[in-house]
Amino acid sequence: KELVLVLYDYQEKSPREVTVKKGDILTLLNSTNKDWWKVEVDDSQGFIPAAYLKKL
């Protein structure tokens, strides 16, 4: 599985998104959309702007 590093805090703005903190390491589930990547946070899944993430 691929991991990503969160570069900036992000507060979810819709139920399909997730809240993350700078420095979090998350599992990347889908990066086919260049603007929004799907990640797994704890036991939930959701989208975060790709610009907030860096592949490890």
Results as ranks from 00 to 15, higher is better:
residue 50 A to Q: 05
residue 14 S to P: 06
residue 10 Y to T: 02
residue 27 T to C: 10
residue 47 F to K: 03
residue 21 K to T: 08
residue 14 S to A: 09
residue 8 Y to H: 14
residue 2 E to A: 10
residue 51 A to R: 15
residue 26 L to M: 04
residue 36 W to N: 02
residue 31 S to C: 13
residue 6 V to R: 01
residue 56 L to A: 03
residue 23 G to I: 01
residue 41 V to E: 02
residue 14 S to N: 12
residue 41 V to C: 11
residue 31 S to A: 12
residue 39 V to N: 00
residue 42 D to N: 14
residue 4 V to I: 04
residue 11 Q to G: 07
residue 44 S to H: 15
residue 46 G to D: 03
residue 43 D to F: 09
residue 34 K to G: 08
residue 3 L to R: 10
residue 18 V to I: 14
residue 4 V to W: 05
residue 27 T to K: 13
residue 7 L to Q: 04
residue 14 S to C: 11
residue 38 K to C: 14
residue 1 K to W: 10
residue 52 Y to D: 04
residue 10 Y to P: 01
residue 24 D to V: 06
residue 53 L to F: 01
residue 42 D to W: 09
residue 30 N to C: 13
residue 54 K to D: 08
residue 15 P to N: 11
residue 32 T to A: 12
residue 46 G to E: 10
residue 48 I to F: 02
residue 5 L to P: 00
residue 28 L to V: 06
residue 48 I to S: 02
residue 11 Q to P: 05
residue 1 K to S: 09
residue 12 E to D: 07
residue 17 E to N: 09
residue 55 K to F: 08
residue 49 P to R: 04
residue 24 D to Y: 07
residue 39 V to C: 05
residue 49 P to K: 05
residue 54 K to N: 05
residue 28 L to Y: 01
residue 34 K to S: 12
residue 19 T to S: 14
residue 12 E to Y: 11
residue 4 V to P: 00
residue 3 L to E: 06
residue 46 G to C: 15
residue 26 L to I: 12
residue 41 V to R: 11
residue 40 E to S: 10
residue 37 W to Y: 04
residue 47 F to H: 05
residue 35 D to R: 13
residue 30 N to F: 06
residue 18 V to R: 06
residue 29 L to S: 03
residue 51 A to F: 11
residue 14 S to R: 09
residue 34 K to P: 14
residue 18 V to Y: 06
residue 41 V to L: 13
residue 5 L to W: 05
residue 7 L to C: 07
residue 31 S to I: 05
residue 48 I to M: 13
residue 3 L to D: 02
residue 23 G to D: 05
residue 18 V to H: 05
residue 5 L to H: 03
residue 13 K to T: 12
residue 15 P to C: 11
residue 44 S to C: 12
residue 1 K to T: 11
residue 5 L to R: 06
residue 1 K to M: 11
residue 4 V to L: 03
residue 52 Y to G: 08
residue 5 L to F: 06
residue 12 E to T: 14
residue 39 V to P: 00
residue 20 V to H: 04
residue 28 L to G: 00
residue 5 L to Y: 09
residue 45 Q to E: 14
residue 38 K to H: 10
residue 38 K to S: 08
residue 40 E to K: 11
residue 33 N to C: 12
residue 51 A to M: 13
residue 1 K to R: 14
residue 23 G to Y: 04
residue 46 G to N: 05
residue 39 V to W: 02
residue 24 D to W: 15
residue 54 K to W: 08
residue 28 L to F: 02
residue 25 I to A: 02
residue 7 L to N: 01
residue 21 K to D: 03
residue 42 D to F: 12
residue 1 K to V: 12
residue 11 Q to F: 14
residue 50 A to P: 11
residue 32 T to Y: 09
residue 18 V to W: 11
residue 31 S to Y: 06
residue 22 K to Q: 11
residue 39 V to I: 07
residue 46 G to H: 15
residue 19 T to Y: 05
residue 25 I to Y: 04
residue 9 D to Q: 03
residue 52 Y to L: 12
residue 11 Q to S: 13
residue 11 Q to N: 13
residue 51 A to G: 12
residue 49 P to L: 06
residue 23 G to P: 00
residue 32 T to F: 10
residue 21 K to I: 06
residue 20 V to M: 02
residue 3 L to K: 12
residue 53 L to M: 04
residue 9 D to K: 02
residue 18 V to L: 15
residue 46 G to M: 15
residue 30 N to Q: 10
residue 39 V to G: 01
residue 29 L to D: 00
residue 17 E to R: 09
residue 26 L to R: 02
residue 25 I to K: 05
residue 11 Q to M: 12
residue 38 K to N: 06
residue 30 N to H: 06
residue 18 V to E: 01
residue 44 S to G: 14
residue 17 E to G: 15
residue 55 K to H: 08
residue 34 K to Y: 07
residue 6 V to G: 00
residue 42 D to C: 13
residue 36 W to C: 09
residue 30 N to K: 06
residue 45 Q to R: 10
residue 1 K to P: 12
residue 8 Y to S: 09
residue 24 D to G: 04
residue 45 Q to T: 13
residue 6 V to P: 00
residue 40 E to N: 06
residue 5 L to E: 10
residue 1 K to Y: 12
residue 1 K to G: 10
residue 44 S to M: 14
residue 8 Y to E: 13
residue 14 S to M: 07
residue 9 D to E: 04
residue 38 K to G: 05
residue 39 V to M: 01
residue 37 W to N: 00
residue 10 Y to N: 01
residue 44 S to E: 12
residue 36 W to P: 00
residue 45 Q to Y: 14
residue 27 T to N: 09
residue 56 L to H: 04
residue 51 A to Q: 13
residue 15 P to H: 10
residue 53 L to G: 04
residue 30 N to Y: 05
residue 43 D to M: 11
residue 3 L to H: 08
residue 52 Y to W: 07
residue 5 L to M: 10
residue 12 E to I: 15
residue 31 S to M: 07
residue 43 D to A: 11
residue 45 Q to N: 09
residue 52 Y to R: 05
residue 11 Q to H: 14
residue 18 V to N: 03
residue 24 D to N: 08
residue 42 D to Y: 11
residue 43 D to N: 14
residue 20 V to A: 10
residue 16 R to D: 11
residue 49 P to N: 04
residue 21 K to H: 11
residue 9 D to V: 02
residue 54 K to S: 09
residue 3 L to T: 07
